[in-house]
Design a binder for these strands. Structure first.
Lengths: 202, 202
DNA sequence: TTGACAAGTCACCATTTGGTGACTAATTTG
DNA sequence: CAAATTAGTCACCAAATGGTGACTTGTCAA
């Protein structure tokens, strides 16, 4: 192999991602990453000043969260035309699909339950920004929101908490509370319920 | 100290509980427990055949989940008189309060996200039984349930998933999605929202 | 009181972890 | 071409982990 620092760094970062996705964060250590990358762990210290630095570099280049377009759909102008409950319904659907298709995000969501580190803090920030952006697109524009006595923030917290939890848990169990969260139908029941709530409440 | 197997076993079990509550499951190992109990770790192997056995013994004697009375209230006869939405509202309130006041349960809920073991499997079973019992008390008796096109199972899954997630997360972060889950008011907003949903849906 | 068994102590093992210093070999720069 | 810099290898360290064998000491029954 050629001696190329950039490439080596990249290989380490990618190896970290693979270990995380495959074995979960419990096994994510310098030894495991170096082994996975077929490189010496000393390079992790030299190039990234340790595991934290590597994880930090990884966080910067990963795609861990559904983008605004992913949540709202391509046609933003059209989205704005819809009713509030339709908007929220769409977000609910896309959000669940968006995080479920990201195995690494599910790992990090589980990780968050246990400790804070570069990756989980990165995800926290991304999530915060994403939330704020959504806020701009949706409820600020809708006059009905202010009037309706509905605590939209609480509602969306309810939905996202439930989705995060069940999506993360679905990596290790199939059934929760009688619902098969490993299959599409189970999720259909859940997202349908959320959409029903949106329409019944707003 | 007197030589008393029963007492020693008890001391080990309690030490395990203290380590779990204080340091979380990441630090729950034979060494840490023995240290905490001021006993030799070999006793864990002799009396419990290892960590799994100890944890199993611990699971058997712990109070990890709100009882039916805790969820439905003292007066079961009176409970049955209420409307379905009132019943669910009450359960929602008591459930959140019930798990939030159990620090060990919050640790186990976090643990569940990461791996299955005696404790998490025990909790799974307890939860399952509790769910079935509730089911008997509530919806089976209510004729409206069958008629209403509402997927009650999905609704309760939504609520419990959200509650589990935020309660467990509140051990390490204060604010989620703009809501202060470390304080009573934040939880008020959430449970109010859930109750509002119950009443609007049923 | 003496013997047997159980309770508890202690020293040790292999393995894994994060982390470092010293080396060799390749590449760039003058 | 030579010197200096940098990439990568290797051998090691201390600490902590789970786990075991052999020992001593207390307790209880015959």
């Amino acid at each position: 192999m050629a001696r190329d620092r950039k490439e080596t760094e990249q290989r380490l970062v990618e190896a970290a991602g693979r270990v995380l996705a495959r074995d979960g964060f419990k096994k994510l250590g310098v030894n495991a990453i170096a082994r996975e990358a077929n490189l010496d762990k000393v390079l992790i210290y030299r190039y990234f000043d340790g595991l934290s630095g590597l994880i930090d570099a990884y966080a910067r280049q990963g795609d861990f969260w559904p983008s605004t377009e992913e949540l709202l759909g391509e046609d933003l102008a059209e989205f704005k035309q819809r009713s509030l409950s339709d908007q929220l319904s769409q977000i609910v659907d896309n959000y669940a699909a968006g995080i479920r298709r990201r195995p690494l995000t599910l790992q990090i969501l589980a990780w968050e339950m246990v400790e804070r580190n570069e990756l989980t803090m990165h995800l926290e920030k991304v999530r915060e920004k994403s939330g704020a952006k959504l806020f701009e697109w949706v409820w600020y524009d809708d006059k009905a929101t202010a009037d309706s006595q509905i605590d939209i923030e609480a509602l969306m917290t309810l939905f996202s908490a439930c989705t995060n939890y069940l999506a993360a848990r679905s990596t290790s169990i199939r059934v929760f509370n009688g619902i098969d969260i490993s299959e599409e139908d189970g999720w259909q029941r859940l997202t349908n319920m959320m959409k029903k709530i949106c329409h019944s409440l707003l």
